[in-house]
Design a protein around this nucleic acid. Structure first.
Length: 237
DNA sequence: TATATGATTGCCT
DNA sequence: GGCAATCATATAG
């Protein structure tokens, strides 16, 4: 019988404050493991997922959006395009669409004026799982496929948008107040958190900016980019 | 202005 | 395992 995480009954789920995000990006990414993603949905009621996988993106990082235009060349910082929104106040939502219908949720980190963000890549459903199931395609069979990927969890929570919509409703919103926010969960000890290379990127593949809860089935299934490259080129470590 | 690519997913073989 | 979907954004010219 599978052991499922449960909501501590005595927990008051209050939003993590701006000071939580006003820190180095990787510290926030690490500490979000085990935190609760909460959305008080007008359609689905309260949805709660426990964060089990994150990735950090920051200014020293060629994988960050608009990195070349923003930091390249003379090293002068000039926020351009999407990257400008990563300079926003800590705790701001950074939501963007990739490929066609996939929307990815990030939270902005570091002091205002310093670029950084954490991508939420996997959560474990704790509350409102029926609604999450309804929000995902009927073809989804395994429970873990509900939320074991950055585009999957936004769809399960209903914080994605329709194709053709240029921006997300939540892009630029404050994640330190309802309806969409993070709350403290049971802290996850260091021996259950692993850092490694990120997934699906082509630059900065060696930077260990990805954090997962070891062994949790809601960690996304993709191979880290450095492993993928090593396989493709036939190189062994 | 023109072209290449992507912080993914799901369906196909 | 491979690859299409589908278009905004990044980058080159």
């Amino acid at each position: 019988m599978a052991v499922r995480a449960h909501l501590p009954t005595c927990y008051v789920m209050s939003p993590l404050p701006p000071s939580f995000y006003d820190r180095p990006t990787l510290a926030v990414a690490r500490d979000l493991i085990g935190a609760l993603l909460v959305y008080d949905s007008p359609d689905d009621g309260r949805l709660v997922g426990r964060v089990v996988e994150t990735e950090g993106y920051r200014a020293d990082d060629p994988a960050m959006h608009g990195w070349r235009a923003t930091f390249g060349g003379d090293g002068f910082v000039r926020p351009i395009g999407r990257a400008a929104d990563l300079f926003a106040a800590p705790g701001t939502a950074y939501v963007y669409r990739i490929h066609h219908t996939n929307w990815l949720l990030n939270v902005v980190t570091e002091p205002e004026g310093v670029a950084g963000g954490v991508l939420i890549r996997g959560v474990e459903p704790l509350e409102g799982e029926d609604a999450m199931t309804a929000n995902r395609p009927a073809s989804v069979r395994r429970r873990r496929d509900l939320t074991n990927g950055p585009g999957k969890l936004t769809q399960a929570f209903g914080i994605n948008e329709a194709p053709g919509v240029p921006r997300s409703r939540f892009h630029g919103t404050d994640l330190t107040v309802p309806p969409l926010f993070f709350a403290a969960g049971e802290p996850v000890p260091d021996d259950r958190v692993a850092a490694g290379s990120r997934i699906g990127i082509s630059r900065g593949i060696d930077l260990p900016y990805r954090f997962v809860e070891v062994g949790n089935p809601f960690v996304s299934p993709g191979l880290p980019s450095d492993v993928r490259v090593a396989r493709k080129t036939g190189k062994r470590e």
